[in-house]
Computed example of a mutant assay.
Amino acid sequence: MEHIRFVGLDIHKQRISVAVAESGRSGSVEYLGEIANDADAISKLCDRLRRSSKRLTFCYEAGPCGYGVHRQLTSLGHRCDVVAPSLDSEEARRSGEDEPPRRHHARPPQSGRRVDARVGARSDHEAMRDLVRLRSVVRQVVTRARQHLQGFLLRHGRKHERGTAWRMAYRRWLSTLAFEHPAQQIAFQDYVDAVMDAERRLQQVEEQILSLLPEWNQRPVVDALQAMRGIALINAVVLVADVGDFTRFSNPRQLMAYFGWSLASNRVARPSGAAASPRPATPMPGSALVEGAWAYRMRPRIGRHKVDRIEALPKVVRDIGWKAQVRLCTRYRRLSARGENANVVVAAIAREMVGFIWSIACTVQSAPKAA
C-alpha cells in the first residue's frame, strides 16, 4: 500500500501554518509550525517533507491570496487541492469539528469534499473573472455616489416627483437645481461630478469586457445563456466568469446551493417548518439573477432584440430558453396571486432560473468541440 503524507495549509498574507498527517492514521494531526509565504520557503518545505519517499498531497482553503501556492506545488509534481471555503466549513460543522483549518485540511480527504474547480493554470478565464470583479467594485462606487447625492438633496428638501431616478428626465431636473449659498452649490456640483465620473468609469470597464469577449474561450456559453429571458450580455459574462465549468455540478440543485438559492433558503419553495439557510447568495451572480428574475413578471414573448441575439444558437438551447419563459412567467403570476411579497417571488424565480442556466451551460460545455 502506498504511503501518502497529507499536508494541510492555512495561508495568510505573510505566513503559512502547516500540519501533517500520515495515510492510514486515524489519530492526531501533527502541527509543524509556520513558514514564510514565499516561493523559497514553500520549496524548502516540500524538500523536507518528501525525504521519507512518501507522496505528498497538499490541501488548503481558497482565500484572498489566490492560487499561487497551488500553481507552485503542482509545478513541483505534488497534488494540491484547493477547497471551496463555504463547502468546507459546512463539512466541519456537520462533523462537529472545532479546529484550525490547517489541521482540518491535513486529515485524509473525505469523499464528500468538493474542490474548487476554478483552480488551474493562469488562463483567459481567470483574467476575465478579475475584470468582472472590477466591474462589481465600480458598480458599488456608482451606487454610493448616487446615494450621497440623493442624501444631500433630501437634506435640502429637493425631491423629484415624477419618473424614475437616474433616467433622462431626472438628469435634466438635476441640471436645473441651484442653491443660495456658494458652499452648498459647490458641494452639490461635486456630488454630481462624482456620479458622472463613476458612471463613466463603469462604462469603460464594460467596454473593455465586450472588447475582450470574442477572444474568451467561454464565449459560446455566454452567447447561449442569453437565450434566457432577463439575462443580457453583461449578466451572462458575470455568471460564466464566476462559475467557469458548469459540468462540475452533477445536478442543478448543486449549482443553486453554490449561488445561495438552495431549497432551505427559499421561503416559497421550502417545506413548512424547514429552517432557512444562513449562507447568502454569491454576491455578483446573485445580483445578476435577481435583476433577471424581474423580467418574468411579463407574459412570455421573445422580443425583436432577443430574436436577433439567439437566432444563431442551437435549437436545443432556444427550446430550453422558451421552456424557462413559459414556466417562470406562469410561476411568477401564481405566486403574486397568492399575495406573496414581490421580493420573495423574485427570489423563488431566481432560484428556478439557475436550473435552466445549468441545463443550457452543460449542453454547450459538454458538446463535442469542432475540429
Rank of each mutant, 00 (worst) to 15 (best):
N217D: 15
Q189L: 10
F188G: 04
R200V: 08
Q208G: 06
M196R: 15
R200M: 08
G286I: 10
Q204W: 00
A183C: 13
E206A: 06
G273C: 07
L263D: 02
A194V: 11
M196T: 15
L225F: 04
D242K: 03
E206H: 02
F179S: 06
R229M: 14
M228N: 06
A232W: 07
Q184T: 07
P271F: 08
Q226T: 12
R253Q: 11
Q226A: 02
A275G: 08
Q204N: 09
R200C: 11
G273T: 01
V205L: 04
Q185Y: 02
I209D: 00
P214A: 11
Q218V: 03
G244T: 06
S272D: 12
Q204L: 08
V205N: 01
P271Q: 14
V243T: 04
A257F: 09
A288L: 12
R267Y: 03
P182L: 02
L263G: 04
L213F: 07
Q254T: 08
N251G: 10
P280D: 00
A241L: 08
V240C: 04
V222W: 01
A269M: 13
V240H: 03
D193Y: 02
Q203E: 15
A194D: 15
V195H: 11
D223G: 05
P271Y: 06
A178V: 13
L239V: 14
M256N: 12
A187V: 10
S211N: 10
F259P: 02
M284K: 05
V290R: 12
V290L: 13
P283I: 02
R279I: 15
I186K: 14
S265I: 06
V268K: 07
E207V: 05
A241I: 03
S262K: 10
V195F: 07
L210Y: 09
F259G: 11
D190F: 06
P182M: 00
E199W: 05
V192W: 01
L202D: 07
P271E: 11
A227M: 00
V222R: 07
L233T: 15
W261Q: 12
S272C: 12
V268Y: 07
E206S: 03
L255D: 01
P220A: 00
V192L: 12
A275M: 09
I234C: 05
A232Y: 06
Y191H: 09
R279M: 13
G273P: 08
R270I: 05
D223F: 04
Q189P: 01
A288T: 12
E180T: 15
A194F: 14
D223S: 13
V240A: 08
T247V: 07
R267D: 06
Q184K: 13
V205Q: 06
V237N: 04
L213G: 03
M284P: 09
N235K: 13
R229Q: 10
V195Y: 07
I209G: 00
E291A: 13
G273W: 06
T282C: 07
D245R: 14
G230T: 02
Q189M: 10
D242S: 05
V268R: 09
F246M: 04
S250M: 11
A274Q: 13
V192M: 00
A236K: 08
P220F: 01
V238Q: 15
P283C: 02
H181R: 15
Q204G: 06
E215T: 15
V192Y: 00
A264T: 13
V205D: 02
H181M: 12
S287F: 09
Y258S: 04
V195T: 09
D193H: 09
I209A: 00
M284Y: 10
L233K: 14
Q208K: 11
S277W: 09
A281R: 11
R248W: 06
F259L: 11
G260P: 02
